[in-house]
Amino acid sequence: MLEIRGLTATIDDKTILNGIDLTIPPGEIHAVMGPNGAGKSTLSYVLSGREGYEVTAGSVTFYGQDLLAMEPEERAAAGLFLAFQYPVELPGVGNANFLRTALNAIHRRRGEPELDAVQFLKLARGEVKKLAMSEDMLKRNVNVGFSGGEKKRNEVLQMAVLKPKLAILDETDSGLDIDALRIVADGVNAQRGPGFSSLIITHYQRLLDYIVPDRVHVLAEGRILRSGGPELAHELEARGYAGLVGESAEAA
């Protein structure tokens, strides 16, 4: 259960998030849509603990814990995962080594047994297969020389291996071809269940055809301006944000 209350955050004294209220119950998938520069990625970074953002008001609890008080790695161990809009390259760091180090770090923090190389490879290979990735990906350096689509798939692979309770997917669908989109959606749907929830940031209705969300929210001007069911995404696809953003501007 993720509960965001009145979350306000600034970068260099510039307010980007301006009172976000959002609750994602366990097992639910929520989509967040909104114009470029609205603050969607900022929200994902603040939730996962990136430095450089100052939270000036509000609170975030995650399964009862004060998320904002935790280090990024503690949030990961608590079950939070962020699939980056722009995945980062780590030269010289093997993908398999990276993933195993991450998984074992999380296990250590939780007091769970660590996986040895054999156990890990078995797990990772299984997930690689499900995502129709080539096994080569495990041997290559993290995201180095990956195509845009490969990077996104690699994020989903990490999610599948780390098995978070809440996955934030920041435009994971951007740059994916049609087949990859379906595979990635299958990857997310496979996790669906009472112990998994997701916050999906996207610009396109198309992804939501494959991953049908429980709720859709519109984030603009640093706030959730509207929420609704899956039909809201269709409405946005047809009408755009113009009307919405305008309405709020009038109200302000």
Binding site: G49, R50, F98
Partner: peptide, 11 residues
């Protein structure tokens, strides 16, 4: 790079 690693659980 630091944040990417830490968001995956690495200290």
């Amino acid at each position: 790079q630091m944040f990417y690693c830490r968001s995956r659980g690495l200290s």
